[in-house]
Design a binder for these strands. Structure first.
Lengths: 217, 217
DNA sequence: CTGCATACATCTACGCTGTAGACATGAACT
DNA sequence: AGTTCATGTCTACAGCGTAGATGTATGCAG
C-alpha cells in the first residue's frame, strides 16, 4: 500500500485559524464588555469567545490590568483625533475634541468606568497632547497653562461621561423620582424634572472655555 | 510569592462588642480599602477583619454592590456639609464645597473609583442638593439652571479627583517622564515639568463659576 | 417560668475567577 | 537537522461572591 501521489484532498472548511493579536483581543474584550457589562467579563470568557483556549489571552497580555489598558487604548483610537478641526481656532478644536470624546465613550457605557480609571499613556494619546499644546502655543498660550486648560477640559468631560454612564446603567436599581404632589417632591425633584441628564454639558464646556479667557478673579 | 508585610490596620472602634452594624461595617470596609486597595478587598476579609465570621457581612448587606453604596455614603458623610459656609455668597459656598469634597476623597485615594462610579442618593446627599438649590434660588437662579451648575461643578470635581487618585496610585506601573534633552522631551513633557498634577483645579473651578455668570457666547 | 419567634452569626457548598507553570506544536533560523 | 522561540493548551491552586441550612441568643406572649 504505497502513498497516493495525488494532491491532498481539499477539506470543506480548512481550520485556518488566524493567530491572535493584542489589538484583536482588546477589541473583542470591548465587545464583550459592551454586551454583558464589566462585572461579568473575565479573561477566560474572552479566550473562549474568540474561539481559543480560555487561557490563551495570557500569551498576549500580562494580566487583566494590562488587557484593560489595551481596551482603553482601543477606546481612545475610536475617538479618531486625526479628523478633528486642527486648522480652526483652538477653542473650537478643544470643544469638538471634548464632544467627540463624550460621544465615543457613551457608545460604550459599560466601559466608561474602565476608561476613567486609567490614564491613557499610549503614543497616540501623547501625540494628541503634543499637537494640542502646540496649537495653544501658537495662539500665545504657554505650554504649562495650555496643559492646565487641557486637563480641566478632559477631567470635566470624563467626569461628566462617567456620571451619565453610571446613572443610566444603574437606573433600575435606584429608586424612582418622587412624583409631583408627593411630600418628597422638593426643589431638587422639581429641577430634575426640568432638566435632562446631560443638558448641562455644553454649558459647562462653554463656561470653562470662556472662563479661561477672563482675568482670574 | 511576595507576602506583603501588611502594616497594622487601624480599624474604627466597634459601637458595642456583641453585634454588627451597617455603619460600622461600611467604615471598616473603607479602612480596609484605604489600607490594601480596592482590588484586594473582599467580603470575607471584611467579616474576618471585624472579628466575625467571614460570611457575617451578608446579614447586613445584600451583596457587594450594596456594601459599596454604604461606603460611598460614609465618604459623603465625611465631607461634613453642615459646616460649609451656608450663610455666605453662593459662589463661595459652591467653591468651598468642591474643595472640601476633593480633599475628603483624596484622603481615601483607593476609594475614589468606588465613589465616582455610584451616584450617592442618600438622604444626606439629597438634602444637600435641596439646600444648595434653595440658596441659588434666593440669588435669582432658577432651580433647573442651579441644578445644571451644580452638576457641572460636581462632575468636574469628581473627574479631577479621580484623575489625581489613579495617577498617583498607578505611578509605579507607569513609565517615568522623559528627561530634558532626550528625544522624547517634547512640548508635553516640558509642560508637565512646569506644572503639578493638581494646580489647575482651582483655576478650573474659578473658570466654571465665572463662566456661568457670562452671557452664553 | 415556659415557649417561641426573630435576628444574628456560623458553616458548608457551588461554580467561577485570576494567575502560575508545565506541556505541545509548528514555524523560522542556523 | 537541530534548536530556539512564539503561540496555544492544559492542569492546579487559592481565593472569590453568593445561596442556603444550621446553630444560638434575645425579647416577647402566655
Amino acid at each position: 500500500m504505497t502513498a497516493d501521489p495525488s494532491p491532498p484532498v481539499r477539506l470543506p472548511e480548512p481550520p485556518t485559524r488566524p493567530t491572535l493579536t493584542r489589538d484583536y483581543l482588546a477589541a473583542a474584550a470591548l465587545a464583550l464588555i459592551d454586551a454583558h457589562g464589566l462585572r461579568k467579563f473575565s479573561m477566560r470568557k474572552l479566550g473562549t469567545a474568540v474561539g481559543f483556549d480560555p487561557m490563551a489571552v495570557y500569551r498576549h497580555y500580562d494580566d487583566q490590568e494590562d488587557l484593560f489598558d489595551g481596551v482603553a487604548e482601543t477606546l481612545f483610537t475610536e475617538v479618531d483625533v486625526d479628523t478633528l478641526p486642527w486648522d480652526g481656532p483652538w477653542r473650537q478644536l478643544a470643544q469638538t475634541y471634548c464632544l467627540r470624546l463624550r460621544d465615543t465613550l457613551l457608545r460604550h457605557p459599560h466601559a466608561v468606568p474602565l476608561f476613567a480609571t486609567r490614564p491613557v499613556r499610549s503614543p497616540a494619546s501623547i501625540d494628541t497632547g503634543v499637537k494640542m499644546l502646540t496649537k495653544l502655543s501658537d495662539a500665545g498660550i504657554p505650554p504649562a497653562q495650555g496643559l492646565r486648560i487641557f486637563r480641566c477640559l478632559r477631567e470635566f468631560t470624563v467626569g461628566h461621561t462617567l456620571a451619565i454612564a453610571v446613572t443610566k446603567l444603574g437606573a433600575d436599581r435606584r429608586s424612582r423620582k418622587p412624583q409631583p404632589g408627593s411630600p418628597d417632591y422638593n426643589l431638587l425633584a422639581e429641577a430634575a424634572d426640568a432638566t435632562t441628564l446631560d443638558d448641562h454639558f455644553e454649558m459647562g464646556l462653554t463656561a470653562l472655555l470662556s472662563g479661561f479667557e477672563q482675568p482670574a478673579r
